[in-house]
Design a protein around this nucleic acid. Sequence first.
DNA 1: CTGAAAGCGCTAACAA
DNA 2: TTGTTAGCGCTTTCAG
Lengths: 338, 338
Amino acid sequence: MAQRPTIHAVAARVGVSTATVSKVVNGIETGVSAVTRAKVEAAVQELGYRPNRMGRNLRTQRYSTVGLVILDPSPRFLADPFTTNLVAGLANYLNSRGFGLLLDGILPGKVESSFLIRGSAVDGLCLSLSGTRRQRIAVMRRIARLGQPIVVFQDLATPSLQDACFIRQDDRGGATILARALLKRKPRRAVVVVSTVPWPAVEQRVAGIRSVLEADGVHVDLVECDETSNEMIADAINRYLDREQPPDLILGQNDQIAIAALHVLRRHGLQVPQDVGVTGFNAFPFMDFADPPLMTIRSAAYEMGERGAQTMLGRLENGHFSDREVVLPVQFVAGASA
Amino acid sequence: MAQRPTIHAVAARVGVSTATVSKVVNGIETGVSAVTRAKVEAAVQELGYRPNRMGRNLRTQRYSTVGLVILDPSPRFLADPFTTNLVAGLANYLNSRGFGLLLDGILPGKVESSFLIRGSAVDGLCLSLSGTRRQRIAVMRRIARLGQPIVVFQDLATPSLQDACFIRQDDRGGATILARALLKRKPRRAVVVVSTVPWPAVEQRVAGIRSVLEADGVHVDLVECDETSNEMIADAINRYLDREQPPDLILGQNDQIAIAALHVLRRHGLQVPQDVGVTGFNAFPFMDFADPPLMTIRSAAYEMGERGAQTMLGRLENGHFSDREVVLPVQFVAGASA
DNA sequence: CTGAAAGCGCTAACAA
DNA sequence: TTGTTAGCGCTTTCAG
């Protein structure tokens, strides 16, 4: 395996100094004659020279790389479409600006062994954290000690964190809209189905639902389910229906859960929306085919990723975050399931 | 913002040389007394020292980072669950071994501007390429010129590529199993619905289906659809049904398409599986709830990601790939849609 | 317009 | 057991 050519190889080839090659490679207009430039460019082509990022980074003290830390107990941490879209938005924006995205999925309790935390290799860190508020704050503090700028996705602002920006969508507002729409049905009892893995955005959704429904005298039950498989989601809902009267409403924390509910209800001989109203959350494309179409909230995950990248790059350029907190709007999708 | 401490800061603090600190930090057992070690560790804690990866990488000529290049015309290149699971498997395996995964989503025609290609920053590259075979090979050759080890996912082996390993699943075999199962229905006409974006694995699936069905005298039509939204998928199938007699079979290149077909067929008043048999491909969890449950093939995307990571790390350790090609098995899921 | 030289943070021979 | 030293590949002043 041939050694990759360095800037010296190019310089030697042309018979100029490495400084000159560096200028050409970095597109510095001033101080290089057109002839020299052309000769250098030819040599770069010929040798297949690519600047070594490490050398450059070490010198410039910039890595042109952003890390994304996802804290999730599931090894398939990318399975959730919200995360997927977030990552896509982040990666695309960063890539288009010449930055890389370094992925780091870590398990709760394994924070210290994360390679992004143990060694510094990025200009800034983005965080997507599950867990209780207490756990999340512990992780945020740990990461804040690294002294790198931080963008936190989908969590409430933690004022004590320095050099951080919190980007989330209006989950509570979305849930409120959903719940208000449901009040027309004059419900008496509602079930909110959530995953056993706590996510801050879900807390907000549940709080929004509760605030509206309970203020109207609706009794709200909470059902937890293991979200790793649809069967387990369905089982949890099944168990509830086996031991309780059918509720008037089932609200899933996301569309996957809502669709599971549709199926379970059908198996119980219950009609949607006539007997039971069902709502989801997120409205990613492949959920379009729920039958009936879900009443849900369209989340802006991809846009959130882009916004996070933009915010981080702005921070790296200006030395400070322009905002401490960004809240993106969500959008109601009426569907026909409630 | 305080400058992050370097190895010199730690050395100065303890009153030893940087070489000693380096040994302690890298867990080199030999040649450091227990007392010195303890003192260094204390100082590391106290100062919050993290070794700078760039310095280390530059010195060791290793980056402990693997790049993943995804070539896809859609900016939401991570939307497909196959890719998502692949990335999760890859990232988890790499992270658990102290490696990072650097994501690079590139658009066709923008290969040269990819930051992974322009500057070297990884030990090896993984590729997931869409496009025609000709286009894919052009990209592979371009990337091979970088002189880095390559793991190609879901494509047929290209013998001319040096220092590369091809990892895919038995898409053709899976499609063959599916098609054989369908022969019992004595079909006369089948429609295969594929995305307009060409993917090598899909070519294999179509070839497998064709080989079995056409050998049995079944006429096979191909319908292409834009996969960006479910509506567009449904439209394409709709148009077909409007102009042709209903086929006996509809075979989707994946489950999303098959589910779209289920809905369109229902709207046309056709029963599945009685009037038309439908099959999908991939069998990711959130597709469980198709009605009726899909006959499909379970893909091993997550495992493929893990395997790719393992293969790449083996290559980096041994200097050569142990295999040139790896084919993972797939699994038939009977369902009830055909 | 061009080149010499210093040094980013780190590791690994080798010397003490 | 510890320290000295020589770079890894690159950018950037500064002098020519």
